[in-house]
Structures are given as structure tokens and as C-alpha cells.
Amino acid sequence: MKRILKFGLLLVFAALVIWVFVYLYQKSKTVPTVYETETPVVGDIIKKTVATGSIVPRKEIAIKPQESGIVTHVYVEAGDLIKQGDMIARIQIIPEMVQVNEAESRVNKARLAFENAKIAFERIKDLYEQKVIALSEYEAEELKYNNSREDLAAAENHLQLILEGVTKSMGSKTNTVIRSTVSGMVLDVPIEEGNSVIKSNTFNDGTTIAIVADMAEMIFKGKVDETEVGKLKEGMHLLMTVGAIESEVFDAYLEYISPKGVEEGGAIQFEIKAAVKLKDNQFIRAGYSANADIVLDRRDSVLTINERVLQFEGDSTFVEVETAPQVFEKRPVKTGLSDGIKVELIEGLGLEDKVKVPTI
């Protein structure tokens, strides 16, 4: 029994020794690395920077009232197309009592003066017809009478203007009807019937009755970082994408670069504006957020390869070209424009060359 036990232990020990030698042998063997390869392709390289912003109308006009008062009627709503001169709203003037009192007093004084001048004129007229007084005296009294009549009419018109904002002699012209100063689409009507409005003056910008804009002429307004603004020039082509309109790219052309930057979040940002080229019957809502790819440089139909295959030594750039299966040799190359992923190949490679992709 002891012999069998010893023999079994020897077998187990021998098996362990053999397993250790096999394990060490396998660990010592090197597994050959198989490298992937890429071939150059013909394509386009576009070097660009991205500006974020929004699309707004080029001309957006805020319509203000010419008189203060209460809105009695609103004739338009957001989305309506209107022409220059169309009615937007009507207001009722609420005059100040001090002004009304002064205007009424002026009317009363002008009426008394007119009645007195009328009596005097009629008396002079009778004397003139009787050949008692000279023509010059009659004409002087007639002038006083006509002036007093005009003063009364002016005082009455002034009172009517204060109370109603319009006089009989003005006809359809009135400050109580607010009309559009431009043609376009109504973007917003921030007031409602019954709201009080204030006219624009030296101390107040005035209440906005409506915002009107020409939606056929839109611009992209965005900002770029100070590190990129030096590369921009007016007239550059922009490829604009709108978040709300999927799979649609719009053309735009840079027309303004701000000469002064503004600090935002610790970085200096410069405002840019670009004219958006809309297709026929295409409509974009004002305020859409958008990203604009500004094309700084581009190469069309050139030999390109992925930048990850490039290797650098000092000032030299080279790649490893496969000469036999998994056998590579270094070859210097000359590169051109890069977009950060692909790079233009000027010299050193052809379409048939297989280039080693280094492992990370």
C-alpha cells in the first residue's frame, strides 16, 4: 500500500514538473504581430473651423407708437405678411389733465378774442361801406379779424389733438393708427388690446408694438475664437447646418468680422456675420441655432492617407511600406494640407502602396 502511495505521489510530482516546463516554454515563445495596412485614396481635404451662432433676419424692425395711450385694436399676429403702410394697431390717447386744462383755456381765450374781433370788424365794415373811413383802416381791422379766426381754429385743433390725436383737417392721417414702416413678416406682437403703450422719446425707448422682418434675406450671426479669427477673410465660403433642419446644408458667405473681441468664459470671442443663400421657396425661421463650418483651405481630388500612419523623426516625415507579406521598409514622404484626420500626399506614395498602420 505504501508503494502504491509513493508511486502515485511521484506521478503527481512528475506531472507538475512537466506542466511547469510546458508553461514556461509557451511563455517564452513570442507571438508574431500582424500589422494592418492602408492604401492611399483620392479624395477631398477641407480644412475648416467651426463657428456657433444663430440665423436672424438682416433687417428686423421694431415698430413704436408715435403717441402714448391704450391699445384698442390689434390688426395683425405673428406670422402675417404685411406691406409698408399696413395697419398694425390702433391706440386711444389718454391725455394729461394739465395739458387738457391749458388747451381748453387757450380755446376759450381765442374764442373771446375772435368774437371781439368780429364785432369790431363788422362795425368797421359798416363805416367803410358808408365811406366814413379809409380803405387802409378797413384792411387792418380785417387782418385782425382773420388772425383771430385762425388763432381760434389752431387752439381747437390743439385741443382735439390732445384729446383724440387727430384733427378734422388731417383727414385719414392720425398718430393713433400705428402702421408698418417696412414690408415683411410679423415676427412678434408683444402687446395686447388694453395694454398701455409709451411713445419713443428722449428718455424712453418706447413700447414695441410689433417686430417686422424680411424673411427672404437671412444672415448667420456667430462667434469665433481669437485663435481662428486671424485666418478669416471676408468672402470666405461657409457650410452651415441648422439643428432643426436635419440633413440640410446651406451655403453662406462671410461678410463681416468684428474688429473688437468680447471675453466670454475666459476666452476672447469675435462676432462674425455671413449672408445665407436660401434656395427657391425655402423658409427658415428666425432664431434657429446653427453651426457654420468656415472653409479655411481645401484640396479637391488629391492623393490622401490617414494621418495615423505617419511617423516623424526630427524634421523628416516617413511611412513604412510593405515590400513583402508583413515586411516593411521606411520611405520618406512629402505631405500637404491636413484636416486633422486625412493628410494630402504630395510625394513618396502611389495608389498601389500598402502602408503599415502602427499599433498604439
Rank of each mutant, 00 (worst) to 15 (best):
M1N: 11
K2R: 12
I4F: 00
L9M: 11
L10P: 02
L16F: 14
K29T: 15
E38M: 06
P40A: 02
V42Y: 10
G43N: 03
G43I: 06
D44T: 07
K47M: 02
A51T: 01
G53S: 01
P57I: 01
P57C: 03
K59S: 12
I61C: 01
I63K: 00
S68N: 04
H73W: 07
Y75A: 09
V76Y: 00
I82R: 01
I88V: 11
R90D: 04
I94L: 13
P95T: 06
E96D: 15
Q99Y: 08
N101P: 06
N101H: 09
E104A: 12
R106P: 04
N108S: 13
N108I: 10
N108M: 11
N116L: 15
I119D: 10
R123I: 11
I124V: 12
D126Q: 15
L127E: 00
I133N: 02
S136I: 01
E142M: 09
N146V: 12
A153T: 13
A154H: 08
A155F: 02
H158S: 14
Q160M: 12
T167L: 02
T167R: 05
M170S: 13
G171C: 06
G171Y: 06
S172Y: 07
T176V: 04
S183W: 05
G184A: 08
G184Q: 06
E192M: 13
G194Q: 12
S196E: 15
K199L: 14
T207G: 07
T208G: 10
T208E: 14
I209E: 02
A210W: 04
V212G: 06
A213W: 05
M215K: 12
E217H: 15
M218R: 12
M218C: 09
I219G: 05
I219D: 10
K221D: 13
T227Q: 12
V229P: 01
V229W: 03
E246Y: 07
E248D: 09
A252H: 04
G261T: 03
E264G: 08
Q269L: 14
A275Y: 14
V276M: 09
N281S: 15
T304L: 10
T304K: 12
I305L: 11
Q311W: 02
D315K: 15
F318M: 04
V319G: 01
E320L: 11
V321L: 04
V321A: 02
V321N: 01
P325V: 03
P325Y: 09
Q326E: 04
Q326I: 01
E329W: 02
R331I: 03
V333N: 02
V333R: 02
D339N: 15
E347N: 13
L349A: 10
L349E: 08
G350C: 05
G350N: 11
L351T: 13
P358N: 07
I360R: 13
